[in-house]
Each structure stands twice: as C-alpha cells, then as structure tokens.
Design a protein around this nucleic acid. Structure first.
Lengths: 120, 120
DNA sequence: TATACTACCATGCTATACAAGGTACTATTA
DNA sequence: TAATAGTACCTTGTATAGCATGGTAGTATA
C-alpha cells in the first residue's frame, strides 16, 4: 500500500488488463487446428507473451468446457503423467468467429482514437 | 442462472472482457489532446462502441487521478451544472506511451496466433 | 527408496466492470 | 413561485475472474 515507491504498478496493472481480455480469443486460436493439451497451451501463450501462470488458465479451460465451447479427452503420455487434450466444439468454432469479428472492430475503434477522431 | 437459454452469454461476456482491458488506454487517448470532461468522454467512448455505463468510468477516473495519471479542475458551464475537466499529467503522458507500445505488442502476438504460428 | 520432472487442479484474495439508485445545479414552463 | 426536465457528477453492492500459492499424482532415474 506504499503509494510512492510502486509507481510502475499501474503500468503493470494495465498491461495485465490488456492481456486479460484477449485470453479467451487466444486460447481458441491455439485450439483451432486440432487437439492440444494444457501445458502446451501455456507454453505457446508464454511464447506469445500473453500469460504466465497456470492459475489463470486451468479455471478458464474448465469454464469453457462447462459452457460447451471445448471438449477434452484424457490421453496417456509416453513419458510422464496423462494429458488432457482439448479441442473446439461447433459452438467453439462459432465463438471463435464471433470473437475474431469483435477483435477487428475493437482494433478499428482504437485506431480511430489513436488518430484523434473524437469530435461530436 | 439458467444455463440452457442464455447460450450467448459467453459471447457477450468475452466481448466485455475484450473492451475491459483497453479502457485505460482509450481514456488516455481521448485526453491526449487537451482537457475533456467526464460526460464528454463517455459520449466519445460510446461512439467508438467501447463502453456504455457511467458506473465503470467514474471510478476509473478517480483511480487514475489518485495515481497521478490525471488531474482535473472544476469549470462552470454556461448551461447546466459545473463540469470536471481532466487532462494528462507527465506521468500520464508516459503511461500513454507505455500502453501504446504494449498494445502494439499484443496486436502483433494475436496476429501471429491468427496465422497459426504455434510450433515448438 | 529418494529425488526430479511433468501435468493437472483447488483455495483464497483482490481488483474491477456493471447495475441500480442518488444528489445537485440550471433552464423552462405553468 | 413551484414543478418538471435536462445535465452532470457520484456511490454502493454484487458478481466475475486473474493471480498467488500450494497441493496431488504418475513416471523416470540414481
């Protein structure tokens, strides 16, 4: 709660916020080409600098599966514990299309604001 | 709490999420050219289809002012109640630059995912 | 048997968007 | 003067969801 020394906290916070909203969209993008298991998703997202912690992704996948966006099946691994492979349902495909459209619109809106197009 | 009839709730939810993260950035963009008062900000954001309700923006502006990103002054209006005009501090200008950079990176990452660039 | 690695998961905290309702000032009109 | 409408600001309560932290379990190796 020190308000003088953590002046970069707002930056970090806003960075986090920016990534947050895109998370569902990015997860669906990662799954659009086939079955992927959870740790693999985390690694891919980290490569894209989009997420770091497991505690965010596992509940998210559970929610998406509960809402019939994803399904999964367990699969034995040759080395290590079994893996939970996820893929998109038809509803998931539809949601992906919807989110892609929304992202395009959002990006366009931000571009407009960046160019200072705020006149009544 | 009905889980069968509100099957578009996840879409709405994700749309909301997408806008959420961009809010700080968009507010700073709106203020980058000078003093603006709150209702005006709300109208501009609505035009850009980025936010709808006041209950989101007022607390956000308070937070940003508390964190020395924005300052404000009261100004009489010729018609109606007085208005609270906000503008960016130097810290706010710096944050805007930071957030612009972050947004660029995020957009690039999403573009990469859209093109299916997830290979180890 | 013990250690290391991989993978999955749950709990508690905190931040925050939204819904809903409220206050106060000005102008218009009866 | 009194009532209504319009504008602008603000607060409270609720629910969502990311994150920190810690834990379980299977496999492989020393």
């Amino acid at each position: 709660m020190n308000e003088t020394s953590d002046d970069n906290s707002l930056i970090t916070q806003s960075e986090t916020q920016m990534r947050k909203g895109m998370l569902v969209y990015c997860v669906l993008l990662l799954l659009k080409d086939g079955k992927v298991y959870t740790s693999e998703i985390i690694r891919s997202l980290r490569q894209a600098q989009l997420i770091v912690v497991e505690g965010t992704l596992y509940p998210l996948l559970n929610r998406l599966a509960k809402d019939n966006v994803l399904v999964y099946e367990w699969q034995e691994s040759e080395q290590g514990p079994p893996r939970k492979y996820y893929w998109l349902t038809d509803d998931g495909q539809a949601l992906l299309i919807e989110l892609r459209s929304n992202y395009r619109k959002l990006h366009a809106s931000i571009n407009a604001l960046e160019k200072g197009a705020h006149h009544e």
